[in-house]
Write a protein that binds this DNA or RNA. Structure first.
Lengths: 322, 322
DNA sequence: TGGTTTCCATAATGATCGGTTATGATCGCC
DNA sequence: GGCGATCATAACCGATCATTATGGAAACCA
């Protein structure tokens, strides 16, 4: 198929017709548009043969629009205005005078990281609208893949001591925001409460309080390495509840620093693990979205809120398969 | 000056963005528009680098519009609709389903020629709007030159027997509608009332009734050729009044056939002149307007109303200088 | 009236645009 | 793990759309 259904009127043509109508001659229309006179002359000729209509009446050395020509000049106003509006809207987005970022972050980051990010963003680019939704990494990444989200703040536990992440990050780009140390939280009355560090094997007999599914998986993985299978007595995704349970002496729990720094925990002891275990806090987006100004601004704000200088540690690593 | 202010958004681009939004993929957008897939791919790329903005988010093998892309797709609707409207209006004019003709004709043609023309036009193209104004040739031609008129119906006396016309017809095209024989009108009581033909010199002693300035000029010219200077006793542009004056025996007059065929004139005799004198009835327009469908239709109708087959006698002679 | 100016038209030229076909890379699916 | 669908890229090609240079005709003016 040849597929030659070329439209007979285009925006450029309309603009020329309007200029002729306004200026009254080809020459001054050309000047007004920044073209030379023959350009207008040919443009009109092309338009006339495309429409199969006489658009301009040449009488002597003056030109006048025919009825058809006036029709085009009249429509030009609306079309060009709409085009300008579109262009303006685009440049507004490009210049961060407009735009939208849809952010999804996991619950425990909502406490400090996200509010700080939103504040930075608001101060720096007050005209872009930021949407925030709380979601665990599996859901936020799904939303990202699905096009319902621009930036996902996720976390990934390190498997053993190698930085292998358990999510499927193919096709996505990640930006490392911070490392979040995981600590063992025990009641202050616990015999090991004042140790320098905690070796997990020493707590194999405890009752355990587990968090979200992935956190629970991480606990099981660490315990397995330490050679035991933890007795999980309680499960709750609410870290404040976890700390409450520990305070009440109902068990011990693994809690990341990000939580401990945000929530009050006077009546529990948070011991560093030995060997240490961390999770990475990551900002995730797609290669294309990364180049959208509003998204880029959000990523920068996230890095800044996380304390890592966005200029120094872009740390863009494309994740390998899970 | 280089004058490179090329607009960053054009109608074609908008159409492509809208197609992508509607179809959900480059390939089906290409099918919908009758293009191949790479055409869409490149079009998007060009648009993106012209706007300096990411318009499409490629994730895996699916594509989605970014916010900026959605902006374009949204504006596309209005712009394309306006463009279609303009196009439709043009083709309506081209197809005589719309359009306008502004006709100006000299008074004595209003009697028969113009009404017949309007009737033909109305029957044949009921959707075009015809405007009619009565005006003597100098004014109607001025209107034509001025752009206030599309077709002027004028008359031109032949100077002597050569077809030299006294109007400035440069830059205009004329279409000969009919030849109008000029007769000498005398009261039926006149001694020469029943002659076969009238030799002008025989009436040098009469009192004359003159018409419009150009008709008066024609009378003077003919009389001059016949060797006398007519005694013009009355002047009126109203031919009916002229006939009335002749009937009352107040003088003689030169009256063209066009009038005699339309007005009652029982009580006067209309003698052919010897040598004969004619005036040409002409339709005048500009070369460009001539090609406008509605104008062409009007010209055809005029020819038909005048009794000359428009197909056989186009008689397009570009007038020389006066 | 005849020269000058001021228009528009045309020709020759070149860059870019905007399509094509052919081909490659990659994701998702069975 | 091949296969099909999808987008990207390369090479090519014609039409578009601008340029400069030039011509002709109309209007203007002394």
């Amino acid at each position: 198929m040849i597929g030659y259904d070329r439209r007979m009127i285009d925006a450029a043509g309309l603009r020329v017709m309007k200029a002729i109508a306004d200026e009254g001659s080809f020459t001054s229309a050309a000047n007004a548009l920044g073209f030379t006179q023959p350009a207008i002359s040919q443009m009109v000729r092309r338009l006339e043969q495309r429409t199969g209509t006489v658009l301009v009446e040449r009488y002597g050395r003056q030109v006048r629009l025919t009825e058809a020509g006036q029709v085009l000049a009249r429509h030009a106003v609306g079309v060009l205005a709409a085009l300008d509006a579109a262009e303006e809207e685009i440049t507004a987005i490009a210049g961060l005078r407009a735009g939208r970022v849809r952010l999804q972050a996991f619950p425990s980051s909502s406490a400090t990281l996200v509010p700080r990010t939103l504040a930075i963003l608001k101060a720096r680019h007050p005209d872009i609208t930021v949407t925030f939704t709380e979601a665990e990494p599996p859901e936020s990444l799904a939303a990202l893949r699905n096009g319902d989200c621009d930036v996902a703040v996720a976390f990934a536990y390190e498997g053993g001591d190698l930085g292998e992440l358990e999510e499927d990050l193919s096709l996505l780009v990640t930006r490392r925001l911070m490392d979040d140390e995981v600590r063992l939280v025990v009641p202050t009355t616990h015999p090991h409460a004042h140790d320098e560090a905690a070796s997990l094997a020493d707590f194999s007999g405890e009752e355990w309080i587990a968090g979200c599914p992935r956190c629970r998986g991480h606990l099981l993985s660490l315990a397995d390495t330490a050679g035991f299978r933890p007795n999980v007595a309680f499960e709750t995704e609410d870290y404040v509840a976890q700390l409450g349970l520990v305070t009440a002496g109902l068990g011990v729990a693994l809690v990341p620093d990000l939580i401990l720094n945000a929530a009050k925990h006077d009546e529990v002891a948070a011991l560093p693990l030995s060997p240490a275990s961390r999770r990475q806090i990551l900002a995730v987006t797609t290669p294309d979205l990364q180049r959208v100004p509003a998204v880029a601004a959000a990523l920068d704000a996230l890095c800044e809120a996380a304390g890592s200088d966005p200029k120094v540690s872009p740390a863009e690593l494309v994740g390998a398969k899970a």
